[in-house]
Each structure stands twice: as C-alpha cells, then as structure tokens.
Design a protein around this nucleic acid. Structure first.
Length: 419
DNA sequence: TCTGGGGTCCTAGGACCC
DNA sequence: TCTGGGGTCCTAGGACCC
C-alpha cells in the first residue's frame, strides 16, 4: 500500500499558522512580483478566485470579500515543508518527497496495521505539531492513493481527512466518481481528447484498450492506466540530481538597454552556479533567453534563446556570468521592451570527475573561492558577496508588498507573544 | 500599469555510423 | 519491378507535474 499525504492549500495554510485570526477567512498568496494567485484558502476558492488569476484583475473582488493577500514567502514555506516532511518520515522507512507540500509513503510490511488509524495518526500529528492541515489517501498504488487523497480532501467531515481504498468496490466507486481531468497524469490536452470520446471518468479511462492508450498517450499513459487498475506500476522515485537548473524572472518594469539585462542575467547565472554546487554538478551547456511582454499588443514582440556549449564544464559563478553575458550579447536587439529573461544550465557532469581539456580548463582557483563565497553568503545572507557585474546598488527589487515575516528562519522576524 | 517559476519524460524524425 | 539491416545521437515538440 501507498499513502499520499498532501497539505491543504499549503502556502495559505503556512500564512495562517502565525496569523490564527485568519482561520475561516479568505486568503490568497501571490507569485513573484505579486503577479498571479498561486494559492487560495477554501474560502477564497468559494468566492470564485481561480488559480493563476492576475492579481490586478481581481482587486475589486479581494476588496469586496475582505480577502487577505500575501506575497509569496518561500523562506517560510520551505521551512514549514521540512517540518511536515520530518514528521512524515517517522511513519515509513520509504518516503518520496514529491513536492513542497506532498509526500508518498510506501507501506510495505504494514499489512497488520490498521491503516485508517495509521493515516489518522499522521494527519493529527502533523496538524498538531506544525499547524498545517493535511489530507491522507491510502491505496494499493500511487495513482490510487492520489485518488483516495482527493476524496479525503473533498469530504473532510465524512472521512476525517483520511481515506483508504482497500477493496475492489471502493476502487471502482472512487474511479467512477473522479472526473477525467482530475486524474493525476491527465492534463488539459488528454482530458479534452478523452471527453470527445465520451470518456468522462477515471473508471471509463481504465476501460479503454491498452493499444489505444499506448498509441495516443505513450507508455506513460499506459502505466497510469494499469496503476489505476490496481497493478502497482509506479514505484517510489529516489532523489536524483537535477538534469537542468534554471533561474528566470519577470521584471517589475520593462528594460530597453543591454546593460540592464546584463546585470540581471549575470545574477541569474550566479544563482544557477550556487544551485549546481549544492548538487555537486558542473554544466557543459548554458542557455540564455529574453522576451518582451506578450500581453502588450501595443509593443513590438521579440523572443529568443541561445544555447551555448561551454569550452569546459564549470559551476563557477564568475565564469557562468561571463558566458551568460556573451550569450546575451548575441541575442539582444535594440528597440524592444524586455519583460523577462532567464538562464538555464544543462548537460551536467559530476563536479569531482570533470574531464580536463587540452587547451582550456576551468580556473581551479575558483573552486575554493566559490566555497568561501557560499559559506559567507550562508552566514550573512544571500548575495552578501557578489560580482561587480551584478547589481551593485540593488536597483531592482521584486514587488513584494504583502510579504509576511520569516517567522521560522530569521531571528529578527521571530514572533512575539504578549502574556 | 500590473499577467510566476520551476521541473520531468516520451516520441518522431533526421543525420550519421558500420 | 526490384533497392539491407542494424545501430546511436541529437533536436524539436508535445505532454505532464507542483
């Protein structure tokens, strides 16, 4: 059996832990630059705020329903996630942290446990120890545990937020209840196509011939179908080093000059270097892209990326910034208003076994230098030490007008209790 | 005026090898 | 009228997840 434990409205719930007066009130959390809604409490969903809603279009509705609006506070969410995961880790030796707010637990060898009770224990302990409400779905396969979780979330009162699919009757009933677009692994495109074929529920999907599923949805679709039928095709996945690492941002205003973009792109490259060093990878290829604001129909549009093969593998921020600037120079065009840029590094080789080149090699002195930079920045805050090519005066700043304190990760922000 | 930021996997087709 | 049989690597595009 597998359990899927998923935090309810995670970002909104994190904000609520330290603002208990907001329990029962509508809350939304916005993306970077306070752009779109990326999390909603149940109350916010109920007043009709969709996922991804542009904040500026919904200001009136926020006002009307007294919606509490927060800028994304990833320092807080990341820390709360770790707390939740460390509690869940006690419940099984095999856990896959699937995303910031959910984890699969493999329950092999738990045959003699009372699973509904076990799930309830997880649910209660996480809520009690962290303040984050969670839902638990337990079933014979991963895909079915997702289904069970959805039921637990949809009917919290009837299920106590824990649902177990442990019989053929329950499995079929659950699949007949689940709409096709709500199936894990079936996105918009496949759902549309399946609807046209009169496949409206997860159950009907499991009745399709294997050959059709394989032809139109590849082996990924076929595995999903079998998993939903109760044959455990998907197993826990172990943590693998990432194959690509990206740092990309939309800008708070439109840029027209190369120098402005260079400064930002250098910062993105440095950030990619930091992320690579954390997993001890060096990249052999770097991609830089820029584009204008696609929503602005009054301005000419331009969008381009460039892939640059590096002469040697590196994870030095200094070298990455230099290459990224070179690449940017090749795709930058005068006369456009740029809204977004990014750096993506790929084609990794392990840091400790890079192949030396005959003529050009990464500067070995950067290795201890980057270690020192990482340690200083870890101690004194991000970007305390940075390149001259990066923003010196910090001229740009992400729009974060509704940022909550970093209650759990910054001593200055620690909560005060008056007694 | 304002519209997010990360990731993964699979397939088909072309270029190339012997 | 007929025109081999096996591979690999790379890229673009399409789908999906949170």
């Amino acid at each position: 059996m597998f359990a899927l434990v998923d935090c309810n409205n995670f970002y909104a719930s994190c904000e609520r832990v330290f603002r208990p007066e907001l329990v029962g009130k509508p809350i939304v959390v916005l993306s970077n630059n306070d752009g779109c809604v990326i999390a909603r409490s149940n109350e916010a969903k109920a007043v009709g705020i969709p996922m991804g809603a542009p904040a500026f279009e919904y200001e009136a509705l926020f006002e009307q329903h007294q919606v509490q609006v927060f800028s994304a506070n990833f320092a807080l969410y990341g820390d709360m996630s770790q707390r939740v995961m460390s509690i869940l880790g006690e419940y099984s030796p095999d856990m896959e942290i699937y995303s910031i707010d959910e984890a699969f637990l493999k329950l092999s060898g738990f045959e003699h446990f009372n699973l509904p009770e076990y799930g309830l224990s997880m649910q209660r302990r996480v809520t009690k120890w962290t303040g984050i409400p969670v839902s638990v779905g337990i079933a014979p396969t991963k895909a079915l545990s997702k289904v069970a979780n959805r039921i637990a979330k949809k009917f919290p009162k009837e299920t106590n937020s824990v649902y177990v699919i442990d019989s053929e009757e329950k499995r079929i009933k659950a699949l007949k209840w689940l709409q096709i677009e709500d199936v894990w692994g079936i996105g918009r495109q496949h759902a549309k196509r399946l609807r046209l074929l009169q496949v409206h529920t997860a159950y009907q999907f499991t009745q399709l011939p294997d050959a059709w599923v394989q032809q139109h949805m590849s082996v990924v679709g076929l595995r999903l179908k079998q998993d939903l039928q109760g044959m455990a095709t998907l197993d826990l996945e172990t943590v693998q080093p990432k194959k690509n690492i990206a740092t990309t941002r939309s800008f708070e205003k439109l840029y027209t000059e190369l120098a402005q973009l260079e400064e930002r792109v250098a910062t993105f490259a440095v950030s990619c270097g930091e992320k690579m060093r954390k997993q001890r990878s060096c990249c052999n290829t770097i991609m830089v892209f820029v584009h204008t604001n696609g929503f602005r129909q009054d301005l000419p549009q331009y969008s381009r990326n460039i892939v640059m093969k590096l002469p040697y593998p590196t994870n030095s921020g200094i070298e990455l910034a230099r290459f990224a600037k070179q690449a940017l120079g090749k795709i930058f065009r005068e006369g456009f208003h740029y809204k977004k840029a990014g750096v993506i590094v790929m084609d990794f080789s392990p840091q400790d076994q890079t192949q030396l080149r005959l003529f050009e090699n990464s500067n070995v002195r950067h290795v201890p230098l980057m270690q020192a930079v990482d340690r200083i920045n870890a101690l004194f805050g991000q970007q305390k030490v940075r390149l001259a090519a990066q923003d010196q005066k910090r001229v740009w700043k992400m729009k974060q007008e509704k940022l909550s304190p970093r209650y759990t990760t910054s001593l200055n922000d620690i909560i005060t209790i008056h007694t």
